[in-house]
């Protein structure tokens, strides 16, 4: 499923990487501890987190994640945004909490697989 479909469906606010919204999302990963996300997320996952510091961009690049969704209306820190724009990593903001954001994306992916 295209990332852009999720963006539209959840009314996410795209803060960077809008040139990469056609990327394919294979699954999702929720986590606020970078070591956990590095260890356990999979390529093509959309990453849902409330961490806003610039290391998240490095993790997304390292693990070839489809993009990063910041929950609870959290905006990326300035350095995070600059880095994400430079590296064309999609960073998006969801007004929903983590649980609801994950739940809805899970539903979308499940519906597509049928």
């Amino acid at each position: 499923m295209e990332l852009g479909f999720i963006v539209k469906n959840l009314k996410l606010m795209v803060r960077s990487g809008s040139e990469n919204l056609t990327v394919d999302v294979n699954g999702g990963y929720v986590g606020d501890l970078l070591s956990d996300v590095i260890a356990n997320s999979k390529q093509g996952d959309i990453w849902i987190t409330r961490q806003i510091h610039q290391n998240i961009v490095a993790v997304a690049t390292l693990k070839d994640l489809a993009g990063i969704i910041l929950v609870d209306n959290n905006e990326p820190a300035r350095e995070t945004l600059e880095k994400a724009i430079r590296e064309m990593v999609p960073v998006m903001v969801s007004e929903l909490p983590c649980f609801e954001t994950a739940g809805r994306i899970y539903q979308l992916i499940a519906a597509r697989e049928k």
């Binding site: 007004e95 909490p97 649980f99």
Partner: peptide, 21 residues
Amino acid sequence: ILFETAGRLYRWGIVGCVDKV
């Protein structure tokens, strides 16, 4: 994983505990 856990519970009608933050 947390994503799957949230997804399954959401599907069964559990909702987030804050409407909007």
